[in-house]
Amino acid sequence: MRKICTLIVAPYAPVRAGLAALLRESDAICVQGELPGNTETLTRMLPGLTPDAILYDGDGLEQLIGILSRMPEPPALVALGETPSRELPLLQAASTLPGWGYLGRDSDATTLALALQSAAAGLVVHEAQASSVPPPTDDVLTPRELEVIALMAQGLPNKLIAYKLGVTLHTAKFHVAQILAKLGAASRTEAVTSGARRGLIAL
């Protein structure tokens, strides 16, 4: 399994060191380096680096997203914070990011590694505590279809989806077909991936 090359960005050296120590507990993550979070340093240094993902802990998330948006191939971004109502919309609106994540600052090594892997794979991941934040504006799925795509993400076939939701197999197939059509997907896997990218599924 290829390691996810990760750059740690945070304003304080002890925070960067602590995050680096956590990430080094995972065999799936490679720490590329550490940078302070000031805009001047990031503007100068980031374009010359090629991490798979950035792990960010700071108050300048909007500025960081702006810098990444000007890069031809920006890395994925996982941000740590405590105010999802303010920070999650910034990430949801960052259409140039290949994938992103949002976690609490008390996340453990396993959670951080999984979030970085998911974001680097082009997915969206955030903690359940942020689920009260409104979905992206391009959310075209009905509440029932959101239930269905969540079950699809678990790998359930149509028959089990029908059983879980208490509907007929025909109805389950109809919902799956509607989801594929609305998301412009050619397969269930593509639909789940598209849904995750849009933040419709919290992985």
Results as ranks from 00 to 15, higher is better:
104 G>D: 03
144 R>F: 15
67 I>C: 08
107 S>Y: 03
72 P>S: 06
49 L>C: 05
18 G>E: 06
143 P>K: 05
189 T>M: 15
174 F>Y: 14
29 I>P: 03
38 N>D: 14
28 A>P: 02
173 K>E: 08
31 V>L: 10
108 D>K: 01
55 L>T: 05
90 L>N: 03
93 A>V: 12
79 A>N: 03
195 G>C: 10
132 S>V: 15
142 T>Q: 05
202 A>E: 03
19 L>A: 13
82 E>M: 02
186 A>I: 07
159 K>M: 14
25 E>T: 07
34 E>R: 01
143 P>M: 11
32 Q>L: 11
55 L>N: 01
88 L>C: 13
71 M>Q: 12
53 A>H: 12
119 A>S: 02
179 I>Y: 09
69 S>H: 08
77 L>Q: 03
106 D>A: 08
128 A>L: 14
163 Y>F: 10
18 G>I: 09
1 M>Q: 08
73 E>F: 07
165 L>G: 07
31 V>N: 03
119 A>P: 05
146 L>G: 12
90 L>S: 02
80 L>N: 03
17 A>C: 14
75 P>T: 02
137 T>G: 10
118 S>G: 02
113 A>V: 06
40 E>R: 10
61 L>V: 04
164 K>D: 10
159 K>E: 15
101 G>F: 10
180 L>P: 01
82 E>N: 04
178 Q>A: 08
81 G>M: 05
173 K>D: 12
65 I>W: 01
121 A>I: 06
44 R>L: 10
28 A>I: 02
189 T>D: 11
169 L>H: 15
110 T>G: 06
51 P>E: 05
59 D>Y: 14
106 D>P: 01
84 P>R: 02
158 N>D: 13
117 Q>L: 09
20 A>W: 05
126 H>P: 06
55 L>S: 04
86 R>N: 12
